[in-house]
């Protein structure tokens, strides 16, 4: 992109009103060309507009919603360091399934099934209370399509909170979740990008309703 073209597009670029491709072209030009001092001025003006919006106290419950979702991701979504151990765990889980072991310790007095769903293909989605912990178990899923992974969600009313993304190629998972499930909530599984999504972008694969308070 030439300097003259960049100059024309600067106000829209600063305002975020350009299509991504055009914005990228302008940004690449600005990275290597110092002939556009006005760019910084315009972007600063835009930033001022955003920051000068009248602050309004958000609904009090929004803070806990955001932090709960972040906490759920943090406990459920593996860091790069933990990813190998999760793969190993998933492999062990599959071995356990092949051996016919039960995922849920049904004989334990501490374990209580709060939600369960079974798909037509035999896949299961279960929420179990084990002492103070809430444990989700997913098993028997078909291989996710290439480029997608299964993602778990908690649903309360209209609100969807991401709990865990299972990773590309992973068809079973078991782990504790930090979300404070209660009766009436739902546990849901969708197919999303492997890095996870903030909002569901595909129809539910499985939905299990929580039938009792922990």
């Amino acid at each position: 992109m030439r300097c003259e073209e960049v100059e024309v597009l600067l106000p829209e670029y600063a305002s975020g009103a350009l299509a991504p491709g055009e914005a990228e072209a302008v940004r690449e030009h600005l990275e290597v060309c110092d002939q556009h001092p006005e760019a910084v001025e315009l972007v600063t003006g835009v930033l001022a507009l955003a920051a000068a919006s009248e602050p309004v106290s958000p609904p009090p419950q929004l803070r806990s919603r955001v932090l709960a979702a972040v906490g759920a991701q943090e406990s459920g979504m593996p860091s790069r360091r933990r990813r190998l151990s999760l793969v190993a765990s998933a492999a062990l889980l599959l071995v356990a399934l092949a051996a016919g072991w039960a995922l849920i310790p049904r004989g334990s007095e501490d374990a209580r099934v709060l939600a369960q769903a079974t798909g037509e293909d035999g896949a299961t989605l279960t929420l179990v209370q084990e002492g103070a912990a809430l444990v989700v178990a997913v098993a028997g899923l078909p291989q996710p399509p290439s480029g997608l992974a299964y993602q778990l969600w908690a649903i309360r009313g209209e609100e969807w909170v991401p709990l865990h993304t299972m990773g590309a190629g992973v068809t079973a998972w078991r782990g504790s979740v930090g979300y404070p499930f209660r009766r009436g909530d739902q546990l849901c599984l969708t197919l999303e990008a492997p890095e996870g999504a903030a909002w569901p972008t595909s129809p539910p694969v499985l939905v299990a309703s929580v039938v009792a308070d922990p």
Binding site: P20, A23, V43, T44, A48
Partner: peptide, 17 residues
Amino acid sequence: EEDLELPSGDPRVLELL
């Protein structure tokens, strides 16, 4: 698709505001 790299403005604007 949000850009991870913002256009560069002057960040002191936040301090001022």
